[in-house]
């Protein structure tokens, strides 16, 4: 009996956790009128209380229509986000996968020390790196370009760390056998390392996508021009008088993230676990 109540509580907590997302998704279908009545207090148009009914009275797709056909700046910002996240992930894969393989399979002098440096860099909060990155980007004249956000992220050491752990699980005998059969280092990497390390690579991709789709600090500091912003900075700037549009834009931003989340949930969990445990 006690257990049942406990389990029931777990579902209740689950519902509470999902509530904000549900409120958003259903809210985007509400009419402008209904929204301004509901949010009057927040927008500052009227006094009174916020009155939010989860289900819309008269569901309408008008905000999505308006957003997709009459708001060209939304497209610019959406593509900014796609471009930034795409370039970061592509760059990370090119740079981090071989590096992780090198840490896992080669032994060279200073390997342990270098790895420790990588771990420290991965754990430093952005605040610490704000000024150094700014000085570097300023020196390279990259400020206010997308590269200012992309390049430092490409060389993030977190994916190296995640993939290192999955490459370590590749049996040493396999590596040695391939070597005896006369395979070159790169051949072993492509034929043995990549296929066997793919779960770690996918974990890094899923975690990376969710992280960079939600990037706030870096563009805030390095992209002063609003037309270069990604979605995560643009959304809060939408005028609250147009709450419907803000909600619709939020839903469209949410869709790719939720898609990646559900497709990659196993890899996400794997990534979380291997970022937290020794294996």
């Amino acid at each position: 009996m006690r257990m049942k109540v406990f389990r029931g509580m777990l579902f209740l907590i689950g519902i509470v956790i999902c509530l904000p997302v549900l409120a958003l998704a259903l809210g985007a279908l509400k009419s402008e009128r209904e929204l301004s009545d509901a949010l009057g207090a927040v927008i500052g148009a009227s006094g009174g209380k916020v009155s939010w009914h989860l289900l819309p009275f008269y569901p309408t797709g008008e905000h999505f229509w308006e957003l997709l056909f009459y708001t060209p700046e939304f497209f610019t910002v959406f593509w900014n986000s796609v471009k930034i996240v795409g370039c970061i992930l592509l760059g990370q894969m090119l740079v981090a996968i071989p590096a992780a393989w090198a840490f896992a399979k080669f032994s060279f002098r200073g390997r342990g020390a270098l790895y420790t440096v990588y771990v420290i860099l991965m754990l430093l909060p952005f605040s610490v790196m704000l000024l150094p990155s700014y000085l570097a980007l300023h020196g390279m004249r990259l400020l206010d370009t997308h590269l200012a956000v992309i390049l430092p992220a490409v060389f993030s050491t977190f994916p190296v760390f995640l993939m290192y752990r999955s490459f370590c699980a590749v049996p040493k005998e396999l590596y040695e056998a391939a070597k005896i059969d006369g395979a070159g280092e790169w051949q072993i990497f492509f034929r043995v390392g990549l296929p066997l390390g793919s779960p770690g690579i996918l974990s890094a991709l899923v975690l990376g996508f969710l992280e960079y789709w939600n990037m706030v600090e870096q563009p805030l500091a390095f992209l002063p021009t609003a037309s270069k912003w990604p979605l995560s900075l643009y959304l809060p700037e939408i005028d609250l008088q147009r709450a419907g549009m803000a909600l619709a834009a939020s839903v469209i931003t949410l869709i790719p993230a939720v898609f990646v989340f559900f497709m990659g949930q196993d890899y996400l969990e794997r990534g979380i676990v291997s970022s937290g445990m020794k294996e």
Partner: peptide
Amino acid sequence: IYLLPMAVPTAVLVLIWKA
């Protein structure tokens, strides 16, 4: 369900948090 918030970009919920 419990992991879902990890996928939700912060900016998406600003209006909802305010409400």
